[in-house]
């Protein structure tokens, strides 16, 4: 179990999240879930590098990423609720009012 294992695992999770984001980008809830998966891979990368380099600052950064991720989810879900209230659906394709 080396640093490389964790790097590979974190990049696999990142790629899964990215592919999921691209495939589900019409559905807003699923896009937010994919963003959570991306955040998860970033946490894994930060913490594993912090552990293997023997430096605690990576864990501190992971803590900050945790806070920012919580804020992002709160704002994103409130936007989702707002959107659903207006259009009664959650497809991103319907947000086309500003299209000129």
């Amino acid at each position: 179990m080396t640093f490389l294992h964790f790097l590979i695992l974190s990049s696999i999770v990142f790629i899964i999240g990215l592919v999921g984001l691209m495939m589900n980008r019409r559905h807003l809830i699923r896009a937010l879930l994919a963003l959570e998966v991306l955040f998860l891979s970033v946490h894994l990368l930060f913490v594993s590098s912090s552990a293997f380099l023997g430096d605690l600052q990576g864990q501190v950064m992971s803590l900050f990423v945790l806070g920012v991720g919580a804020a992002e989810v709160a704002v994103g879900l409130s936007l989702l609720v707002l959107f659903y209230r207006r259009y009664q659906r959650t497809d991103v394709d319907d947000i086309a009012q500003l299209k000129g």
Partner: peptide, 8 residues
């Protein structure tokens, strides 16, 4: 990996 794939 399995859980994230299933989640998405």
């Amino acid at each position: 990996i399995g859980c994230t794939m299933a989640a998405l």
